[in-house]
Design a protein around this nucleic acid. Structure first.
Lengths: 114, 114
DNA sequence: GTTAGATATGTAGAAGAACGAGGTATAGCT
DNA sequence: AGCTATACCTCGTTCTTCTACATATCTAAC
């Protein structure tokens, strides 16, 4: 049973942008996809998901249209705006830079500073 | 000029625990060390640093004594408690799990779901 | 001698994110 | 009729982080 890992602040936005960047999807599917791909490491509660989507939409990074799902239900499909795609690239680079730095620090040993 | 990367929530605690785990240090030196090792990617403002240290001390993860610096000034030297060392290990594992998952997601491509 | 910068610590207030708990509604299965 | 999965949403709490401010000492330049 994998323990749930709370996402650090800001990371959720990046992951959402990434998934939406692969093709229009609705919110519920985004959460499912993140959970699948991460093998249950990333689990997005709805109380985090929907506020994040509205946030990104308000910032002009996502746009949405109501469409029908394959199963016949109405759902709000999100897609990246041009601004959103730029933001995705910036945040991806930023994440890699940061993750690299944290990795460096975690690999530090007593003699590592000099 | 490397752009400042705000640390995601929770990460600062991990990095502080890591540095303190290498040997007793005072707060100001922790920030310097993080900046050096990360090549300026991680920059810790004092308004984040000291509250974090007090938080960790209150949670029983760090303990502190006033001592003299090499340069002759009084400073508060922190060290890991047993609880703090356990926490460091747990958070390190948690970070690796999370960073791995985010990496997986960021490497996703259109066909990556099946 | 005094001004500036680095060292070293701290607080206050605001902004923002994440989460749990709650609510609505439809579709399909038994 | 009841249960589960799908699909959307909001409210209030909690926690972290950051900007700005405030203090004090030591060293070096001028």
């Amino acid at each position: 049973m994998p323990e749930k890992s709370d996402l650090p602040q800001g990371t959720l936005d990046l992951l959402i942008l990434k998934v939406v960047g692969l093709g229009a999807v609705h919110g519920y599917a985004i959460a499912q996809r993140l959970q699948q791909v991460s093998r249950d490491v990333v689990q997005v509660p709805q109380g985090s998901l929907y506020p994040a989507l509205h946030r990104l939409e308000n910032r002009g990074l996502l746009a949405a249209d109501w469409k029908e799902t394959e199963s016949g239900r109405e759902a709000k499909f999100y897609r990246l705006t041009r601004k959103g795609r730029a933001q995705l690239e910036a945040e991806t680079a930023s994440w890699r830079r940061l993750a690299g730095a944290v990795g460096l620090i975690l690999r530090m040993s007593e003699g590592g500073a000099e």
